[in-house]
Structure formats: C-alpha cells, structure tokens
Amino acid sequence: MTGLEIGLDGYDHHMDQYLTFLAIEKGLSEKTITAYSADLIRFGEYLKERNVADVSAIDTAVLLRYLIALREAGLSARSRARHLVSLRGFFKYLAQERIIDQNPAQQIDLPKTGLHLPDVLTVGDVECLLGTPDRSKPEGLRDVAMLELLYGAGLRVSELIQLEMNGINLEGGFVRVFGKGARERVVPVGRIALSAIRDYLIQARPLLLKGRASTALFVTRRGGAMTRQSFWHLIGRYGRQCGLKKKLSLIA
C-alpha cells in the first residue's frame, strides 16, 4: 500500500475526486454521474454500517457480500450489474491513482442466467421446479443445490456442471467459474443457494460417492461428474412434473 490510512471520510473524498474525474476527464453527462454517485453513496453507507474503516480493507469478499445484500434487498440482476459497473470503475480509478494496489472488483461478474429463467418462466414456475426434487434422497438434495445455484447465481449450464470442489467458497459466499476462453469469474451466491449446497455436501455427496474420490462438485450415483446431457434430462423430468415441457423446450 501507499502507507495512507484512508477512513470513511477518505472514501467520500476519493468518491468526490472520482466523480470530478468522470465529469472533467471523461466528459460524462450529469445524468450518468448522478447515477454513479447514487451507487457509490449506497456502497459507502453499507461500509459505515459494517464499520469498514478504510479503502484498503475493501477486498473482493466485501464486494461480493455487498452484491449479495443487494440481491436479498430485491434489486434486479440489471440493477446489481449497474452497481458492479460503478464499483469496478471506482476501484479501477483508485488503483490507477495508486491509492490501492489492485482493483478488488476486477474479477467479479454477474453473468446472464444460463436458463434465462426470469425471461421464460414465471415465479410460480421456478418455485415448482425448485420444489419438485425429493429432498429425502441424495439425488434430490443434489438437484435442489444445482437448481438453486443455477438460478440464484445466474450460471450457465456448462459452468454449473464444470464446477469443482475448490471452486465454491461457502464462507465467502461465492463461486469461481471458467467461461468462454477459460476466463475466470467470481460470482456471488445468495444464502438460500449456499444453504442448499451445504445440505448437499454434508448429507448427499458422500452417499453418492460411496468412498470414491472426485474433484467435481456435483456428482452422479456412479461417482462421476454430472454431464450436460444428464442435467437436461433431470430438468426435463422436473419440468414435466410441473407442466412446463413447452416452456423448457424454449430454453433447452
């Protein structure tokens, strides 16, 4: 670090400097700057509530928890993505000015949902899908965890089935996924999905593996990694039980 101790007054100071930079150096409109300002002020209030004392203490985990808090407050994926853009730009500026060593928001992403559930299915449809797996069986707990993670974190199906054990951080509340071009992204996960994953890891995964070793997060009864084909077979079966065959064919 530069040796500067930057308190919350410092956060406000650097925020003001950044907004001035956007206006003068970047020539952004007043409307755009007002939107950035609102996002950064809301984040500043979040820091104050949690007694985060200086900018150097804001790491990727803090930002992930903030994005999860926004989701649980009811903000849409589009609104959360806008907040993330605001934070990325602010921390990029701080890094360029050598106020911090690196941008903690750089690797965080909010990808579009692989199932496009909000666009194709109603809330009732999604609730039916999530409620259909038999949670008394290991496969049911696994399927609930997969669906909650797919829906809650907005992963693509290919990202979901390729997740490995070292890619999930339950304590930090995020997953690390590799998308196109092997690009790594850090994606925040909500508390409901995290709870479903914990249940699966404790109660179901050991029963599915039966003592066998696997690096895959989601495994089959044979101990292998879940495949894309197997996942869509499960989705189709649950969809038929919910009467969603036609809707699911639109997103398959």
Rank of each mutant, 00 (worst) to 15 (best):
L150N: 01
L149T: 15
D109K: 13
Q162A: 15
S136C: 00
L129M: 12
D119K: 15
C128P: 00
L155G: 06
L115K: 01
P111F: 11
L147R: 01
E159L: 13
R156P: 09
E148A: 10
P111L: 09
L149V: 12
D134E: 11
P133W: 00
G124V: 00
G154R: 08
D109N: 10
E159M: 12
P133T: 01
H116G: 15
G152I: 02
G140Q: 03
V126C: 05
L115V: 08
P118M: 07
L163E: 07
G124I: 00
V144N: 00
G140S: 05
T132V: 12
C128S: 06
R156A: 14
E159R: 06
L121E: 04
L115Y: 04
D143Y: 06
V123S: 14
K137W: 03
V157Q: 05
V157H: 04
S158G: 11
D109M: 12
I161K: 09
V120Y: 12
L141I: 09
L121M: 13
G131S: 07
Y151G: 08
G124H: 08
I161A: 11
L149F: 08
E148M: 11
G140A: 04
L160E: 06
L110T: 02
K137V: 05
L147Y: 02
L121W: 04
G154H: 08
L150F: 06
A153T: 12
E127Q: 14
T113Y: 01
D109H: 12
L121S: 03
G131E: 01
S136K: 14
L147M: 15
D109Q: 15
P138F: 10
L110F: 05
L121Q: 05
T113P: 10
D109P: 00
G131C: 02
L147A: 03
D109C: 07
A145L: 10
V126P: 05
L163P: 09
R135N: 00
P111H: 09
G140M: 03
L141Y: 03
D134A: 09
M146F: 10
Q162N: 15
L147I: 03
T132H: 00
E148C: 08
V126D: 02
T113A: 14
L121C: 07
E159Q: 14
L160P: 11
E139T: 14
L141F: 02
V123I: 14
L163D: 07
R142V: 08
M146Q: 04
L155M: 12
G131N: 05
R135P: 00
P133N: 03
G124S: 12
T113G: 15
V120D: 07
L117I: 13
K112P: 07
K137L: 15
L110D: 01
